[in-house]
């Protein structure tokens, strides 16, 4: 792609000086039907919460996908470290007694 100066109205040199400030990123969660939980559907950029909510409506519910929207600043999300995956989640694998199939109930007793 040619990079000649001034093609977009601003000379190349000036363009590189104008460093654009980032518009904050938001995570969008949508409840598709009553009774269901809000589910993460994607992200968007907006300067504030009201604009984020409107953008979420305009971008992520164009095909009737939602009844309710949450927007959360991406920076507010705290996530577990993938390196901790084994420490955090493997210990539960051995707790078979937490599952109903661990216990024996005779067939004659019926569904329990």
């Amino acid at each position: 792609m040619p990079r000649s100066a001034g093609r977009g109205g601003i000379p190349q040199e000036r363009r590189e000086l104008v460093t654009e400030r980032n518009i904050p990123l938001w995570e969008v969660f949508i409840r598709s039907r009553n009774g269901l939980a809000h589910k993460h559907v994607g992200s968007l950029h907006a300067a504030d919460s009201e604009m984020a909510l409107q953008a979420a409506r305009d971008v992520y519910t164009r095909r009737g996908e939602g009844l309710s929207i949450w927007v959360v600043p991406s920076a507010a999300i705290v996530a577990s470290d993938p390196a901790d995956k084994e420490v955090l989640f493997e210990p539960t694998a051995s707790k078979v007694y937490r599952h109903p199939t661990f216990y024996e109930v005779p067939d004659e007793v019926g569904h329990m």
Binding site: M1, P2, R7, G8, G9, I10, V18, E20, R21, I23, A46, A47, D48, M51
Partner: peptide, 30 residues
Amino acid sequence: CNHERMKARRKAHDDGAWVREAALAYAEKR
């Protein structure tokens, strides 16, 4: 159309700069 396409994208970006600035400035004020 390479030149025209890039020109159109640059124009939209440059013309929109003051709008994005305004949105950020308002968010800070708020």
